[in-house]
Every structure is written in structure tokens, then in C-alpha cells.
Design a protein around this nucleic acid. Structure first.
Lengths: 191, 191
DNA sequence: TATATTTTAGCACGATCGTTCGTTTTGTTT
DNA sequence: AAACAAAACGAACGATCGTGCTAAAATATA
């Protein structure tokens, strides 16, 4: 890996951190450069535009999340996979490297009504994740089950965790998540 | 109502609209003034600071939402109340006056990690809403039920609607919401 | 080590940000 | 109609925004 690629990684790690707090729009080139002791123009040259930087941050964030999927891939059953995914997700949201929670969840509420490359990058990632999750539910639900419905409710739980934990600062947010998740699993098996 | 109060209302209606798209931070005094054909300083004088404007927008949004609660108050049972609330919420999120969805939901992911008056105003409102919803679940669930858990899952559904409808643009988002909600009601009665 | 290429820095630009000030217009009250 | 209060305006401020351009420094290649 050349030097350019290395600084690019350093930049994106810090950008991910900042975007988790301030969002992709609140992330500024100047502030990012200062935080890394780089010149604004030097940093800028790595991406060419702010929009390209935002796309890079989204992809970098997805890659960093994917690095943590070891326990999920180690699982053997659909239920185990989903349990592991949820555990990884909760830890991800609470990671100190993300002082403002998951930047992708934040981007969902920031880019939902904006057109452009960042939104497209975001949606593509969301759709891919959704497809994977559908597959996990297929492995544990009886044939004919409404798999997309189950995924809808699964994502609902993760969004509610973000809300309960970060907005309300409810200390029992994790317990609520697991209770809701097990109820969902039970319903999936029954349906 | 004096003239000052009238323009203030006009300002806040437009500010709510813009904040729904661009968030409370993306909402700018200059842009808001231009959209209303007012001078920047004249508009600014109504609030004294951007932070105060943000707080005013949050409170104004809450008031506008409360104006739509008629069907909810008309309901007689807890289940009917919650059904009506959910219906009102879905229509609210999709209202053309809010091109970017509910500004309060957006604020939840924008202010969650920021300290200050706007966050406090937001959380106070969320806590009050939560208390009201707990009361509705109490009216339909058997004694000893985990009411806070039910509210957690109720809010999960509304957050997931925002996501499915606005991010994924899933045309069956509403159907998913109602299916999840009826399942939740059934579980509440059983528990 | 000399050369070619990549990476970083410095400086400046027009635009916009939130905010302050003094003035002028508008509305209300006596 | 006169006097007062409220509201809106216009201009300017320092700061920061994203984005060019050019030169210097650092790295990779020969």
C-alpha cells in the first residue's frame, strides 16, 4: 500500500468519526484537515469534491463494519447468524470510535430526501444488507413466511436501539432489544 | 395576535419545512429569510440566536403535530387510540408540508450526541410522548405487562416506516407497519 | 543516484455562515 | 395628529465553507 492510500485510510477513519457526530454534511474539509494536521488542499486532493468524500466515507464505514462480521460468519444456523449480527450491531453503535453512533444510520435520516451519489451509495448498501438478512430469515422461517416483513421488523429494532440508547439514554435499551428480537424470532418460527 | 407573532408563525412554518429536508443545522438564517422575502437581520431579531430558532422550530413542530390529534382523542379504547395515533403519524410523515419527513425524527439522529438547549427541548418532548403512549398500552394490556417494552417496539415501528418509506422507497411500507402493529397489539393483549 | 511521479502545502477566490449595529419603516396608543 | 413602541431593513464584521491553481517536498522507479 502506497503512502497515498495510507493517508487516505487515516483520513477516512477520522472522517467516519466526525460524520458519526456531525453527519455527512456537517463534516467539513477544513475541520477534518485540522484534526489530522494536514493542509486543507492536500486533503482535498485525495477526493476531488466533498460529494466524493462523502461517498468514500460511506463505503469506508461499510468496510469497517464488515470487518467485524467474523462471529456472524462463524454461526451455523439462521437464528445464530441473526443473533450474532444483532450483537455485532449493538457493539458497533456503542463503539467509542463512533462517538455519534453509526454514521450510516445517521445518513439514512440525512440523505433520505437528497438526490445524488451519496444517497445512491447509501441505498445500494442498505439494499445489499437487506438481501443478506432476508436469506438468514429464510433459513429459519417456514416456507411461505413473509421474509421482507421479518426484515422490516428486525431493522425496526436496531433503529429503536439507536433512539432509546442515544436520545433517551435508557440504560435498559439493550435488554429491550433482546426481548423484542426473541419475540420476533419466535414469531418467525411460528408464521 | 400582533404582527410580530404572525410573522413568527410564518417563519416557523417555513423553517419546519426546510428543517425536514436539511435538518436543524442545515437550516440557515439567510436561506430562510430569502425563502420568505425577509431580510436576514429582520428575521434574526425574532429569535436572537440560531440555537433559539432551532428550539422554536422543535416546539412549533410539536404544536403542529398536536393539532392533528383529534382522531386520537376521539378514540374510546386504548387500542383505538394507538391505531389512530399510528394513522396520524404515518400521514404526518408523508405530509407534503414536510418534504423531508418528520423534522423531530430527523432531529433525533442529529442532536442525539450534541449538548445544549435544542437537545433538551427534543428529549423533553420525546419523554412526554412516551409517557402518554405508556398510558395507552396500560389500558389494553393485562396488569404486570412490560409497558415500556411495548412502547419501545411501537416506536421501532414508526422509525422503521421512516426508513422503509423514505430511504428504500418501499411502496409496501405502510402495509408492513400495520402488520407489525397488529402483531404488537396481539402480543400486548397476550402478555 | 538521477529521474519521474505522486503527494502535500500555500495562497487566494467567491460565497455563505451567524451575528451586531444603527436607521428607517410600520403599527399601535393616547 | 403626535408620540411611542415594535418590527423590518441594509450594511458590515470576522469566520468558515468548498474549490481552484501553482510550487515545493516526498516518494517511487530506473
Amino acid at each position: 500500500m502506497g503512502k497515498g492510500a495510507m493517508t487516505r485510510e487515516r483520513i477516512l477513519d477520522e472522517a467516519m468519526r466526525i460524520a458519526s457526530r456531525d453527519g455527512l454534511e456537517g463534516l467539513s474539509i477544513g475541520g477534518l484537515a485540522t484534526a489530522l494536521s494536514l493542509s486543507k488542499s492536500g486533503l482535498f486532493a485525495h477526493f476531488g469534491s466533498k460529494e466524493a468524500l462523502q461517498v468514500a466515507v460511506l463505503e469506508h464505514t461499510g468496510a469497517r463494519f464488515r470487518e467485524r462480521m467474523g462471529p456472524v460468519e462463524a454461526a451455523t444456523t439462521g437464528a445464530e447468524s441473526l443473533r450474532a449480527l444483532l450483537q455485532v450491531t449493538l457493539d458497533w453503535v456503542d463503539d467509542p470510535a463512533l462517538p455519534g453512533g453509526c454514521p450510516i444510520m445517521g445518513a439514512c435520516f440525512e440523505l433520505d430526501d437528497r438526490e445524488g451519489a451519496p444517497r445512491e451509495a447509501l441505498v445500494a448498501r442498505q439494499v445489499a444488507t437487506q438481501a443478506w438478512t432476508v436469506g438468514q430469515f429464510r433459513a429459519l422461517a417456514p416456507q411461505g413466511a413473509d421474509l421482507e416483513q421479518l426484515v422490516f421488523e428486525y431493522r425496526a429494532i436496531t433503529l429503536a436501539y439507536h433512539h432509546a440508547s442515544r436520545v433517551l439514554r435508557d440504560p435498559s435499551a439493550r435488554a429491550r432489544v433482546w426481548k423484542a428480537f426473541e419475540a420476533l424470532l419466535a414469531r418467525a418460527g411460528r408464521e
